[in-house]
Nucleic acid binder design. Structure first.
Length: 447
RNA sequence: UCCUCGGUAGCUCAAUCGGCAGAGCGGGCGGCUGUUAACCGCUAGGUUGUAGGUUCGAGUCCUACCCGAGGAGCCA
């Protein structure tokens, strides 16, 4: 047998005899000519069999092969502009085939379109489709780029607990689980508070793991289980935080463009809008954002849009507001200085303007909206204690958190980036449930 | 939790005014040497989400429920 290759490297094997191990994605037969579109986990390539070139029984076996059958195919690699695939433009002239298993002929995921419910019910098979395969390959690169940038910029990975004693921010609904004699433990919605402890040992840290929200959110931007990376930095104010974020996000986008161009092309993603992502990103205040949204609302003739864009200073933006705002920029945009009342208890107040705080969200362009939420944290122990009281949080649960402000407190900042929203934006897809292998939503825990 | 829309063959959908349950794809069989979700012919395939009601007759009308999607709130 010839060397087993990966389809993603097929361009290096033109003119050579190779073997691929994979699955039959589609079969088209035209009498004496058969096309098999085969995927091997690394890509999709067209394999061609001519009746006159092969033994009778080999050709018959190829003619009757079913979708998703597992195979080892040997043949000669050649360039052909007509050949579909990822990357396309190459095909293998079949000289030999070994069928590992003939798949059951009633494969449910036909190549025609499917409804959402059916696709999700068959997620374990849907993963094999080119679109899902491409999105999840981009996801893996995004995750790799996240770790790479942090690991090479002075950050150290510190895993924070998933089972936690109480609501970290006191607002979101959490999943609870019985925990021996300790009552209820809650699945983490953030590792931030623990990271605030970690920075005093390691200066720059990040946690990266699954995060859980029991909110009954039913939108294309929400999952009950999602992945979030949360860097936290000692001796860092809000301006320095924004510099970190724009470097970080630019690196992630660049890596995706470099390594996943065939996947992004197969998704039909116009990457020109991603090519221009580099620091700096524009910074606008919450006050300015409110004004910009009001201007858009003033100009629109559509009464429905006018209704949706109605907004009073003091609230948090909804999806229509974020879309109207981000359409004005071709790169991600920072919105800083949100009202203290709508943000978490630990955010540092704006000097001289206690009604707003040193928070910053990063909104992705093209209507994708918030991918990062972050802030400078309160470092003064007296103010922090006051906020805990104001928010009605149990003081004893935050005893350890308060102590961080007693022993060498420094200004510090951090943020959380949502992996699925970032992948949605980079891939240009509509719904974040496609950006995680097995999505968990309010109505679905299967498969 | 609220608002809107939907549920008919394995999948995607059609079925006029309440009047024989249909098509394409997918499966099987046959044909075709350049297909791109191929195409052509034949063929198999149905508890119309569930329960009740109106009617000579219900996929269609009424009531309740179940399930799903989109959005709002909340958030990354």
């Amino acid at each position: 047998m010839t060397a087993i290759i990966r389809i993603e490297q097929i361009s290096e094997y033109v003119g050579q005899e190779v073997t691929i191990q994979g699955w039959v994605y589609n079969r088209t037969h035209k009498g004496k000519l058969v096309f098999l579109l085969v995927r091997d986990g690394y890509g999709f390539v067209q394999c061609v069999a001519f009746k006159n070139d092969l033994p009778e029984e080999t050709f018959e076996e190829i003619v009757h092969i079913t979708q998703e059958s597992s195979v080892e195919i040997s043949g000669l690699v050649r360039v052909d502009g007509r050949a579909p695939g990822i990357p396309g433009g190459f095909e293998i002239g079949i000289t030999g085939i070994k069928v590992i298993q003939i798949a059951d002929e009633y494969y449910p995921m036909s190549l025609k379109e499917h409804g959402t419910d059916f696709a999700l019910e068959n997620r374990h098979l849907w993963l094999r489709m080119p679109s899902q395969w491409a999105i999840l390959r981009v996801r893996a690169t995004v995750i790799s780029a996240i770790r790479e940038w942090l690991d090479t910029n002075g950050f150290i990975n510190m895993d924070t607990p998933i089972l936690t004693p109480a609501a970290a921010e006191g607002t979101t609904t959490l999943f609870g689980t019985p925990y021996f004699d300790e009552g209820i433990a809650y699945l983490a919605q953030t590792g931030q508070l623990y990271n605030e402890a970690n920075i005093y040992a390691f200066k720059k840290v990040y946690c990266f793991g699954p995060t859980f929200r029991a909110e009954k959110s039913k939108t294309r931007r929400h999952l009950t289980e999602f992945w979030m990376v949360e860097p936290e930095v000692a001796f860092c104010d809000l301006d320095e935080l924004m510099e970190i974020e724009e470097q970080f996000v630019s690196h992630i986008v660049r890596r995706a463009l470099e390594e996943r161009a065939p996947e992004l092309a197969s998704l039909g993603r116009d990457t020109s809008s991603l090519e221009m992502i580099s620091p700096p990103f524009q910074r606008i205040s919450y006050d300015e954002a409110v004004e910009r949204i009001a201007e858009v609302r003033e100009k629109t003739a559509d009464p429905e849009e006018k209704e949706q864009l109605a907004f009073d200073w003091g609230g948090d933006f909804g999806a229509p507001h974020e879309i109207a705002l981000t359409r004005q920029f071709d790169k991600p945009v920072f919105v800083y200085g949100y009202p203290t009342a709508v943000k978490a208890f630990y955010m540092e107040p704006w000097p001289g303007r206690p009604e707003v705080c040193k928070s910053v969200d990063l909104l992705a362009p093209e209507g994708y909206g918030e991918i990062i939420g972050g802030s400078e944290r309160i470092s003064d122990p007296a103010l922090l204690l006051q906020r805990i009281h104001e928010h009605g949080l149990p003081e004893d649960a935050y005893k350890w958190y308060m102590e961080l402000r007693r022993f060498g407190s420094v200004p510090h900042s951090g943020f959380g980036l949502g992996v699925e929203r970032t992948v949605s934006w980079i891939c240009g897809i509509h719904h974040i449930r496609e950006t995680i292998p097995f999505p968990r939503t309010i109505n679905r825990v299967y498969p």
